[in-house]
Design a protein around this nucleic acid. Structure first.
Length: 273
DNA sequence: AAGGTTACCTGCCCGC
DNA sequence: TGCGGGCAGGTAACCT
């Protein structure tokens, strides 16, 4: 489910519901997620002070100076429900708060994972230490992208999905931003013209921002919205549109596999230059 | 060292 | 209707 806009939407939805909540207990299904769950005992009787996003991770800052880090994997979802609500299938972790609310973590495929670390050491944590820049910050610029890719021979599509380069660009928005920038997904990463790096960066930012905006409009319907592919899907120009006419030139959208991931593009609008 | 492949896990959709 | 194969929006551990 989640790329950066989805995680941003989840965080925005959780903030008003659990900020300030005091944790009283944690239970789990006994099934492992991608990695073993952390020991939650130091968080008991502690308030959640803030909820934030870094890359595709959710960060729950607790008052004892520790941060609970959570990645949703492919199918992870959070729901805030009253304590008495029945457990559903694939619900693997339940955090219970003093106000009677619970934060439920559901994850069908169990690719998600959670960890705990001192808030002061977050950027040194193994999951964060090697991450690239946040795409929506000014650090992510055409010059940055050109420089970091100057020795990379992989495809530009795989390069922008590499979270050592820039975080948060998943499979959908990689295809979408390359289409908007008119860049062929197989183009060698270090072979773009200077203007193309800038253009690509600009389109990554706008497509992510638009998707966040679309997600934002559904926050009041948060529980239902999370996990559904629909809300930004109507805006896809290439993703999932194999064989359908390009909105710009009418040529059928094509599909290829790059790095094991499906990639969509228009061979006329995204010509190799 | 970069790049390719595989693995993790379940559900769904498609073709036979 | 049933079954098997392929595929799914992520990440990292392996190889070479």
């Amino acid at each position: 489910m989640p790329e950066l806009p989805e995680v941003e939407t989840v965080v925005a939805g959780l903030k008003p519901q659990i900020t300030g909540a005091k944790l009283v207990s944690v239970s789990d299904s006994g099934k492992n997620l991608r990695y073993p769950l952390p020991d939650f005992s130091t968080l008991l009787q502690q308030n959640i002070q803030r909820v934030e996003r870094r890359a595709k991770y959710l960060l729950f800052y607790f008052e004892n100076g520790q941060t609970l880090i959570w990645h949703l994997g492919m199918t992870g979802q959070f729901h805030v429900l009253a304590q008495h609500e029945a457990k559903t299938k694939h619900e693997h972790v339940t955090l219970t708060f003093t106000d009677g609310n619970t934060l439920r973590y559901r994850d069908t495929r169990r690719f998600g994972y959670a960890g705990l670390c001192d808030s002061d050491d977050l950027e040194q944590h193994a999951w964060f230490a090697k991450l690239g820049v946040e795409p929506l910050l000014d650090d992510f610029s055409g010059d940055y992208l050109r420089d970091i890719l100057k020795t990379r021979k992989t495809s530009i599509k795989q390069a922008i999905m590499d979270n050592h380069v820039v975080v948060g660009v998943g499979n959908i928005y990689a295809s979408e931003s390359l289409f908007r920038a008119g860049i062929h997904p197989t183009q060698v990463a270090n072979s773009l013209k200077p203007k193309q790096y800038a253009l690509l960066v600009q389109h990554i930012k706008t497509v992510l921002a638009e998707a966040i905006e679309a997600g934002g409009s559904t926050i009041s319907d948060f529980v239902k919205a999370v996990g559904k592919p629909g809300y930004f899907a109507h805006s896809f120009k290439v993703y999932g549109r194999e064989g359908e006419p390009c909105h710009t030139c009418k040529k059928p959208i094509e599909k290829i596999i790059l790095g094991g991931r499906v990639s969509f593009f228009c061979s006329k609008c995204q010509m190799m230059k």
